[in-house]
Structure formats: structure tokens, C-alpha cells
């Protein structure tokens, strides 16, 4: 038992070392966005830290209360931050959302349902029921 504990403690102590060893290796994401130079709704520092809370708060207000023109809007994010080449915020590690989430190794759940492409319009064959 105590041996196991010792081992665990050692492992915990060693963790920062692993972290330090890896910190220099992963390249910072390089992103080219469609609308650079425009003003975001909050400073980058704040956005980096809090965008998920802001979006989560707003998603419930939009969905449950019908608030449609709030300051925080996922589609608003996409309009500015979509990639210059692909027009989307996901799809490759050079696209805005995915770049950072891949870098930080955080699962990105939004785009299972939300459209990551700015201004996408679904092409439905007209007059043809499914």
C-alpha cells in the first residue's frame, strides 16, 4: 500500500517535468482569419479564458428565451473568425476554433450541430420532398 502511495507521489512530482519537457515542442497555432483587424467583443485575453462561458450563457438565453441580437453570438464569432481560405472555423488545424482547441487538446463539441462555415446556405433540391 505504502509502496503504491510512494509511487503515486513520485509520479505526481514528476508531472511538471514532463510538462516542461513538452512545452517547447508543440508549435503555437498559426491562423489566418477572414476579417482581421476588426474589433472583437472583448480583449483577446478575456476571450481566450472566457469565451466558453459567454457562449454557454448566451446559448441558453437564445434557445430558451428567444434572444436573437445579443452581444455574444456563435454565428458572430464565425463571421469574423472564419478562415480566409476555407470560410470555416473548423476543418483543419489552421482554422480558428480547431487550431486552438487542437493546441490545448480540448474537445470541441459545438460543430457537431452548429455550422462552422460563415453564411452557409443549405442546398435543398426544390419541390422534392425527402
Amino acid at each position: 500500500m505504502s509502496r503504491a502511495l510512494n509511487f503515486l507521489a513520485l509520479l505526481l512530482l514528476a508531472l511538471p517535468l514532463f510538462g516542461a519537457a513538452h512545452a517547447g515542442e508543440a508549435a503555437k497555432p498559426a491562423i489566418i482569419i477572414a476579417n482581421p483587424g476588426t474589433q472583437c467583443i472583448a480583449p483577446p485575453e478575456e476571450m481566450r479564458r472566457n469565451h466558453m462561458e459567454m457562449l454557454k450563457h448566451q446559448r441558453d438565453r437564445t434557445l430558451r428565451l428567444g434572444e436573437r441580437s445579443a452581444r455574444v453570438s456563435l454565428n458572430g464569432c464565425i463571421e469574423c473568425h472564419a478562415s480566409k481560405t476555407s470560410g470555416a472555423v473548423t476543418g483543419s488545424n489552421e482554422n480558428f476554433c480547431q487550431a486552438c482547441h487542437a493546441y490545448a487538446a480540448v474537445k470541441l463539441d459545438c460543430f457537431d450541430c452548429h455550422q462552422p462555415k460563415a453564411g452557409h446556405k443549405a442546398a435543398v433540391a426544390s419541390g422534392e420532398p425527402q
Binding site: D112, H114, Q115, K117, K121
Partner: peptide, 15 residues
């Protein structure tokens, strides 16, 4: 899995 959603109408697999 879907890729053709309209921005205003999110919808996705498993829901």
C-alpha cells in the same frame, strides 16, 4: 453526422 446545417438552425447527429 451532418455538415449541411444552416447557421441559424443547428442540428446534429444523435439528437
Amino acid at each position: 453526422p451532418l455538415t449541411t446545417q444552416n447557421p441559424e438552425v443547428p442540428r446534429g447527429v444523435g439528437c
